[in-house]
């Protein structure tokens, strides 16, 4: 049972991947609109990506905790 629970705990990664893809698309569009601001857009993009990835990481941690119980 633990294995099934651990596998289900990784479903939030779906939302994270979708959100990060949308963010990158908007960032690319903004850079195409104004290439001089690409440095700032890059910094903001990295910050946003790391924050959006955190929910996927929570699921990963829970899957690990569930899996390591014997």
């Amino acid at each position: 049972m633990n294995a099934i629970a651990a596998a289900l705990a990784l479903l939030p990664a779906l939302g994270a991947g979708l959100g990060m893809g949308l963010a990158t698309a908007k960032a690319v569009e903004a850079t195409a609109r104004q290439p001089e601001a690409s440095g700032k857009i890059n910094a903001i993009l990295l910050l946003g990506l790391a924050l959006a990835e955190s929910t996927a990481i929570y699921g990963f941690v829970i899957a690990l905790i569930l899996q390591s119980k014997v």
């Binding site: 955190s54 990481i57 929570y58 990963f60 941690v61």
Partner: peptide
């Protein structure tokens, strides 16, 4: 808690 889990999860991964 969220700060700790984020750092821990990324480093462990």
């Amino acid at each position: 808690v969220s700060l700790a889990c984020r750092l821990f999860g990324n480093m462990l991964g």
